[in-house]
Amino acid sequence: MFAAIASGNPLQLSTEVPNSNGLQHTIVLSSTKPKSYSHITLFILPNVTFPDNFIATVYFKLTPTEDFQLFGYLGNEKPSAIFKVKLPTSGISQPWGSSYGDGLGEIDMDDSVADTNIPGTHNISELIIGISIEPRDQGMLKIQEWKVQQQSAKTNNSSLVLSRPGMAGTIGTVGQLASAYPKLTQELAAKIVQHAYNYLSGFLDNAGNVSIKRFDTWWDKFKARLANDGSFLDEVTSN
């Protein structure tokens, strides 16, 4: 009924969970290359007729012993979704956070949540996708509650509080940040301007002008991407 593709790896089909009457499915990414993929695409198979009054909630976990974490859903109006994977850098991967955005879940497998003395690392090729088919009202209620939790977590982590050796107090405003790190702030501003230029230059009219609506679209997309992962700015270059 479902299938998943980890980037650079073959398609893998779902299997029904025994005694679930076809309502629960799993996909174990056991044959993938653990260090080679950054995105997973999950979709309903083309020949499957999915009832309008049901959705398939999507969950992930790293090993059979862990608890599933909710990351989105599939349905007739959204037969596929893409999930971004962040591989761990060292140590045991802790329960990951996620960010919501138009069907894009994020499996954040960083190991910075808590220190641990347990040796070894997770094999990311053991990533398990759990899929539960449930009534739409019941499933969408879970999704809405999940979105509220994610937004709350994002809001709680959005305040900027930095300290710099040799400086008293903390950095809590843009002006203080620019004063403390003028060169880095200048580089950041240049990256943002270049990112806007790269995007807007594709919409120039014959007079060399761009509609303000194009700028608004760029700004909305930029803010959303910055909230998900600001490291993309490191890759911004001039055309």
Score class of each variant (00 low, 15 high):
residue 125 S to N: 07
residue 49 T to N: 15
residue 239 N to K: 14
residue 194 Q to Y: 08
residue 104 L to H: 11
residue 159 S to F: 12
residue 135 P to V: 15
residue 11 L to C: 15
residue 152 S to E: 11
residue 221 K to D: 07
residue 226 L to R: 06
residue 22 G to N: 11
residue 214 R to K: 07
residue 86 K to H: 14
residue 41 T to D: 14
residue 218 W to Y: 06
residue 10 P to D: 01
residue 123 N to Q: 08
residue 169 G to V: 12
residue 219 W to R: 09
residue 92 I to M: 10
residue 72 G to C: 04
residue 86 K to Y: 15
residue 118 I to Q: 13
residue 150 Q to G: 11
residue 2 F to N: 00
residue 16 E to C: 09
residue 12 Q to M: 13
residue 66 E to H: 08
residue 220 D to R: 01
residue 169 G to E: 14
residue 104 L to K: 14
residue 58 V to N: 03
residue 218 W to R: 00
residue 7 S to F: 00
residue 104 L to Y: 11
residue 54 F to M: 11
residue 158 S to I: 05
residue 30 S to C: 12
residue 139 G to Q: 13
residue 231 S to P: 02
residue 65 T to M: 15
residue 4 A to H: 09
residue 196 A to V: 01
residue 26 T to H: 13
residue 1 M to R: 09
residue 177 L to E: 02
residue 111 D to A: 13
residue 28 V to P: 07
residue 73 Y to C: 09
residue 226 L to A: 03
residue 62 L to S: 07
residue 94 Q to M: 04
residue 144 Q to N: 12
residue 4 A to W: 10
residue 189 A to M: 04
residue 210 V to L: 15
residue 196 A to Q: 04
residue 108 D to R: 05
residue 24 Q to T: 08
residue 227 A to N: 07
residue 209 N to Y: 11
residue 39 H to P: 09
residue 185 T to A: 04
residue 212 I to E: 10
residue 124 I to E: 01
residue 103 G to C: 00
residue 221 K to G: 08
residue 176 Q to V: 05
residue 92 I to L: 09
residue 112 S to P: 02
residue 184 L to D: 06
residue 149 Q to R: 12
residue 157 N to H: 10
residue 224 A to F: 03
